[in-house]
Design a protein around this nucleic acid. Structure first.
Lengths: 129, 129
DNA sequence: TTGACGCGTAGGGAATCTCCTACGTATCGT
DNA sequence: ACGATACGTAGGAGATTCCCTACGCGTCAA
């Protein structure tokens, strides 16, 4: 099922990678991406309905997403339609590639381990600091 | 070869996701992960050889990675051996899943487009319509 | 024991983030 | 023209990041 002939992908510069990961390091912004993914391109107004924060604050989040290349905007009358731009996420995927075998290995042994335990000591939630 | 029987994966809480992405939003920390991936578990000293910054600063970065669950430490004499813990990266992969079809679609049409263009005008990425 | 080594933490300074309210700008309806 | 709407930006407060130097603590070697 891997038949897609993935075209060569421009590698993000280091600061660009920083911006993408930093943009993703915020629940509000991840939620925006999710809304655009599931709801298609939307004006700010409609996105804002889903959040408790002020609309200008949401605008700032959109700016961060724009600078990371994760969304694009298109003006339509007095609205600005935001659209998901998933290419940088593809680069994140590429970046993850070389690590994949590690978590697969870990999950395999962990899976066996869990199969042997009687119950599941649900996540100790290691909250330090 | 998709025979791996992937065990159920605990979903990271929102703040935990924040910590993982934030930890990845720094070139030094991504480089540390790469060193641990390619060089196996290593003491801080050996990691520090690759960076220009002070060793205490590197220690801080290791702390961030630890709090994100991306590395673990094991004491050995007066050394502390750091090891890659890739499980959170697996959760990042899971998070990416629902977006995959978007960048695949985009890359398909973009690939065709790029094949036609002479060079890459590091776009402000506004699409006319 | 004494001293060197390996590493973490304390504390501080500059920059950045995340939220707010106030305001500016462009567009739409009347 | 006018006010209402949709959105961005300015500016500021408080928290956090990222680097530094100084120092504390445990371990090894002599």
């Amino acid at each position: 099922m891997n038949a897609t002939p993935v075209p060569p992908r421009a590698v993000l510069s280091e600061p660009a990678q920083d911006r993408v990961f930093a943009a993703l390091a915020n629940g509000t912004r991840r939620e925006v991406l999710c809304l655009l993914r599931d709801g298609g391109p939307q004006p700010v107004q409609r996105l804002a309905e889903h959040f408790a924060m002020s609309r200008p604050s949401l605008s700032e989040h959109l700016k961060v997403l724009r600078q990371a290349g994760l969304v694009s905007e298109q003006r339509a009358g007095r609205q600005r339609i935001y659209r998901l731009e998933a290419a940088p996420l593809g680069e994140v995927q590429d970046w993850l590639g070389p690590y994949e075998r590690f978590w697969r290995a870990k999950l395999a042994s962990l899976g066996e381990l869990l199969d042997r335990l009687p119950d599941d000591p649900d996540a100790p939630d290691d909250e330090a600091q």
